[in-house]
């Protein structure tokens, strides 16, 4: 086994082409658990945490932002990133503990592609775009085409996830989740809701209740017809409840060691109702 520690993206891609079976590691907070419990014995590792290019974020001319795959969650919790993408800040703050948020990254979340990954519902709600790079080409893929299933994604073996582009919307957005305790918990169910007033659209994405993150397009378009998303300030309780019910219909939860399908379906209806009520409180 070897561990390569490239300092640039191009060094990392070279290391990957000479070792196509190598596992890429960002903060390590997922992979090290597998290694510690002898579930994974990697042959070769390429550690990306010292690549400075991956640890920055930029504002684009169209108003969107591009966050490097190696930016740790703790940087998304506060400051300008929090103002631009408040739902991402809320999601980041629910990832593990401060220790995990100092190490864990969006790139790692995307690479692992667990349906319970806290960053992913936000990326689905805002229609984020994933940047992939190989020695030959760079390509950009909608998050909806990137995540294929439980821990499966569209990254090719010779590619590195370099960044995510996130549109900055104009309207309320938030993230919330249910777990067995308040701090430091893996989601039993999670939801991100984002409103974009100029396009009169509402987006809701669910985590941990299906093989991929689920966008509830039927509930979204139903609400758009019931309610003026750009001028309203308060949503009636009945409408919020019905929205929650419709969101739950689009979830595809299973029974597993963390919860039951029935409870998850109930939980997402409550989460959706809560989020839309927070968006339109009074």
């Amino acid at each position: 086994m070897t561990v390569a520690i490239p300092l640039t993206i191009s060094e990392a891609l070279d290391a990957l082409s000479s070792n196509p079976d190598a596992r890429l590691i960002q903060g390590g907070t997922d992979m090290m658990v597998e290694i510690n419990f002898n579930h994974l014995k990697p042959h070769n590792i390429i550690a990306l945490r010292r690549i400075k290019e991956l640890r920055t974020w930029t504002k684009n001319t169209d108003g969107s932002i591009t966050i490097g795959a190696g930016v740790p969650y703790q940087e998304m919790e506060t400051g300008e990133l929090k103002q631009l993408v408040p739902a991402l800040a809320e999601a980041a703050r629910t990832v593990g503990s401060p220790q995990i948020r100092a190490a864990g990254t969006l790139g790692g979340n995307l690479g692992t592609c667990s349906p319970a990954g806290d960053g992913l519902p936000v990326l689905f709600a805002v229609d984020a775009v994933v940047h992939l790079q190989s020695n030959e080409v760079s390509r950009q893929l909608s998050i909806h085409d990137f995540m294929l299933g439980v821990k499966r994604n569209a990254r090719n073996a010779n590619e590195i996830i370099t960044a995510v582009t996130i549109p900055v919307l104009n309207g309320w957005q938030g993230y919330t989740k249910v777990g067995v305790r308040n701090a430091m918990v893996i989601s039993v169910a999670s939801a991100c809701l984002a409103v974009d007033k100029p396009t009169k659209s509402v987006r809701i994405a669910l985590g941990a209740v299906g093989p991929t993150i689920i966008r509830c397009r039927d509930a979204e378009s139903w609400l758009t017809q019931q309610f003026d998303l750009s001028t309203s300030t308060k949503i009636e309780l009945d409408l919020a409840k019905e929205f929650g019910r419709r969101v739950a219909l689009e979830s595809k939860p299973i029974d597993d060691h963390r919860s039951t399908a029935e409870y998850r379906r109930h939980a997402v209806s409550v989460l959706a109702q809560r989020l839309i009520t927070r968006a339109y409180p009074s």
């Binding site: 590792i45 401060p98 220790q99 100092a102 190490a103």
Partner: peptide, 8 residues
């Protein structure tokens, strides 16, 4: 501050 068990 990080968990040293999760750092290779």
């Amino acid at each position: 501050a990080v968990c040293s068990c999760l750092v290779m």
